[in-house]
Amino acid sequence: MHDTRLLVTSIVRVSGTGESSGFVRWVSKGERRVLKTWPILESRFREFDLNPRGGLRGGRGIGSTEDRLVIAMTDRLYVFDRQWNLVAELTHPLFGEVHDILVEPDGVWVTATASDALLKVGWDGQLLRSWSWRKDPALAEALGLGAWAGDAAQVDFRDPRQLPPLYDFVHINGVARAPEGLLLSFGFVASGATRRFQSLLGLPGRLLKGLGLDTSLARPSRMFAMRFLGARYSSSTWLGVLLPEDGPARIVARQEGVKIPNHNLHWDEDALVFNDTHSSQLVRQAMDGSGRRQVRVPGTPAFARGLAPLGAQRFIVGSQCPTALYEVDLQAGRSELLCELGDNVHECVYAVHAVPDTFGEPPEQLWSSAAPPVAAAVDAGPRAAAVGR
């Protein structure tokens, strides 16, 4: 009997220095259990990040072709061949707080929330394409961010000490292929009022930094956490954005009043499927607005995240409490527990990916038993390229 094997990454919130901030798991769908677990490789900048939730913690997106599998961390991509040899480690100064990825035959699309960038890198680490809302004046105005458009800061976005005071304007956290081009998830577009509140709360830190005092209040990552505090008293928006092969980007889906980011995207015939993390639901929404289906993902909180399509409107979705995987059937309107992954109430599933049958069983030690990477830490392009399409 054929068994679908799933690769799953997770984040452990509020994990301290010296503790593992996330895991990679190998899961048998047929046996409904975890077969192997590996701690992630931590970012070398993690000690400088003050965001208590995600920040530089945990594993990120996963993707594959028939020949290559990619596991993303917060500032780099690890590329494996069919035998689970680590054949490349790819990174770039714009890889600040990497989220989901899309793996295609010629390279990897990467969403990076700190730099507000969508990037495509080749298998040799070279930057093939880049795009940001900042370079699309019409989209920036539609987002209410016209005042903040223009060139991004020229810094290494992987290092939280270099981040500008205000960053991560749209929380670009998902990318998927659609017939016309790419679908993007703008997970959390804060309102102008939230931005102003965040700026006000960060004023003491900016003054301290101006005086040359490197305190926790002066760290941009602390300002980011203040944005979510501001969102409690103001509205924020999730957006699905279509980036066609030709022509300008356009907004194709919208959800107002979100307090936490929504996640993941998948094109399903004529509809968009995404995790409504705010409401703990998996949603299928017709692109023409003619219909919508949703199924609740269990959990207290669920924090629904991770999306692996199984076909026929069935998906594997992850949750936080419990840290678990659920099989969600949108047509039948039900969700069923596949298996629990752990009992840490602070651990949340990040990504779920069905691994192609062309890959064998992974080794007992995923990282240390792999061959040395052949393209380690490739900083493609300029130190921090201006982001444009």
Rank of each mutant, 00 (worst) to 15 (best):
Met223Ala: 11
Gly205Lys: 12
Leu184Pro: 14
Thr323Tyr: 12
Asp357Trp: 07
Ala149Arg: 15
His278Glu: 13
Gln126Ser: 15
Trp84Asn: 07
Leu94Tyr: 04
Ser235Glu: 15
Asp270Phe: 05
Leu102Lys: 11
Trp26Lys: 12
Pro244Ser: 10
Ile101Asp: 00
Gln285Arg: 14
Pro137Cys: 03
Gly16Ile: 08
Arg82Gln: 14
Met1His: 06
Asp276His: 11
Pro382Ile: 13
Arg25Glu: 14
Leu7Tyr: 01
Pro363Cys: 06
Ala380Phe: 06
Gly247Thr: 10
Glu245Asp: 15
Arg232Met: 12
Gly388His: 11
Trp238Leu: 04
Asn264Pro: 02
Pro179His: 01
Phe186Glu: 05
Asn344Asp: 15
Leu166Gln: 09
Gln294Ile: 06
Asp75Ser: 13
Pro382Lys: 10
Val175Glu: 02
Asp343Val: 03
Ala178Pro: 05
Arg293Leu: 14
Leu166Ala: 11
Lys259Asp: 11
Asp159Ser: 04
Pro160His: 12
Val374Met: 10
Gly59Thr: 09
Glu364Ile: 11
Gly342Cys: 11
Ala253Lys: 06
Gln285Ser: 11
Leu213Pro: 03
Gly174Lys: 03
Ala153Phe: 04
Gly150Lys: 10
Leu242Pro: 13
Val349Ala: 04
Ala304Leu: 03
Arg25Ile: 10
Leu102Cys: 07
Gly202Cys: 00
Val378Gly: 02
Ser28Asn: 10
Gln320Gly: 00
Leu128His: 10
Ala386Asp: 09
Gly122Ser: 11
Leu330Pro: 05
Leu139Cys: 07
Pro105Cys: 12
Gly318Ala: 05
Val103Gly: 00
Val345Asn: 06
Gln126Pro: 01
Glu31Leu: 14
Ala286Arg: 15
Asn173Lys: 09
Leu94Asn: 06
Arg76Phe: 09
